[in-house]
Design a binder for these strands. Structure first.
Lengths: 244, 244
DNA sequence: CGCCGCAAATTTGTATACAATGATGCATGC
DNA sequence: GCATGCATCATTGTATACAAATTTGCGGCG
């Protein structure tokens, strides 16, 4: 793409911040746009852990110079999605198995806190919305609508984060989830696991509706313990990675 | 400083990674060195929230070009210590009062989790070390050794993070503590508060030694609730900031 | 006297050029 | 035939140059 030399400032005039609202309202700079783009590629599994991130190649691929690329990489490095070894280039982060386990435990605890806060802090209307969302997901399970359920599942968990009423906590939970995303590519595989997941969600929702924070936290921990089991394998098969 | 023009590569040959081990073993690049330096200045209160971070000024002050400065700022922005408004420059982060409250609540919960994990996961030797550390701090309180206690206090809490056995969780807690640091400049002011703080630490230590995770978490929450009270004022006096 | 609009200036964003380090491959010696 | 050392190469780190945008100050107008 962009084989024609584009005069330095031939940018599309920055058409609108529409693309991906990175929370930087004014104007997404190239570095930020690139960062969100790469982050998506990583979390969606299009760039598996271990992938080398060569500055010049990325620059050429996106029609920019190395400068914004470097800044984007620094941003992602601070986020934890990529790993930067000074003078040795950057690669998509590939945490060691032990570290993955820690991240998963941390995520479980973060979600447990969020759920507990949800039980106490959510408005009646918000609780109703959560219940309705859960009901909708129930229909997806019945119909075997796997793809839809996957998306709805992410949305469900993020609703938990948001419902905590603590945006800082929500951001940490969300960031952790994104960092774990590359390692759950083939999650929720079986139909039985799908139904089980939905059932566990039910326990969480019930506890929140009842205003029982302790029960909600416990339900979340159970849910994530089950989920972890369904891809503990993935965490183990580290070696063969090394995609170009 | 550095008024003499230094030929582009007149660096001190990178004497040794000794200074501040940023966890990037090979070689601290200028950007990383700058980032840690600025981070210290911010957390130590030498650059209060709201301080403008002008690229060229920082570059001149540190004898480097704008490029490393920009990367350092990006790094700090991702850490949350500075705020970057595209095309409008960077300033030391100045969260709104509500956001500060959220961060404090999050920190309390993170520490509560860590303490709970400490109770379960710490080795007998580690528990002994923690108790000994606590005893040492007791002497400081008796002697009114305020400065020493402040440092020891930070070390105590970080020992809690490390003792959790979950480095990921520990990093989140530590990062949150650093982000809150600029707002606790004059904490632990009174002698009475000092003694109270130590007493609360005692409850935490006792619960951990007893292996009672629930009690440890509760003790941490009580401790931080008290601490918060001692600088809730600070969070309120936002307006006058705007230091050059 | 205050407000609006315009122009200069500061400051950020991006591109390019240069230097240095880490990696690679080959030739040489054992 | 294998290991070791050196030279070449590729890639990162840093500096500088240029363009765009925002801010600031001034002048005119109401």
């Amino acid at each position: 793409m962009t084989l024609l030399a584009r005069s330095r400032t031939d940018t599309p005039a920055r058409p609108a911040p529409a693309g991906k609202p990175t929370r930087r309202r004014p104007g997404p700079t190239r570095a930020e746009a690139l960062a969100t783009e790469l982050a998506e590629a990583i979390t969606e599994g299009r760039m598996p852990p271990g992938t080398a991130l060569e500055e010049e190649r990325l620059a050429a691929a996106h029609g920019v110079s190395r400068t914004p690329v470097r800044e984007a990489l620094r941003l992602l490095a601070a986020t934890g999605l990529v790993e930067q070894r000074p003078r040795r280039g950057a690669v998509v982060a590939r945490p060691e198995p032990g570290r993955l386990a820690e991240m998963f435990q941390a995520m479980a605890e973060l979600e447990a806190i969020c759920a507990s806060l949800c039980a106490q802090a959510m408005s009646r209307a918000d609780k109703a919305r959560l219940a309705s969302r859960h009901a909708t997901m129930g229909k997806m399970v019945e119909d075997g609508w796997l793809d839809a359920y996957k998306d709805a599942n992410v949305a469900f968990h993020e609703a938990l984060y948001a419902g905590s009423g603590n945006s800082y906590l929500a951001e940490m939970a969300d960031a952790t989830r994104r960092r774990l995303a590359p390692f759950r590519a083939a999650q929720l595989g079986g139909q039985d696991r799908l139904a089980a997941s939905h059932g566990e969600h039910g326990a969480i929702v019930a506890a929140i509706l009842a205003g029982d924070g302790v029960a909600a936290a416990a339900a979340v921990r159970r849910h994530l313990a089950e989920t972890e089991g369904s891809w503990g394998v993935l965490a183990g098969q580290q070696p063969p990675l090394r995609v170009g």
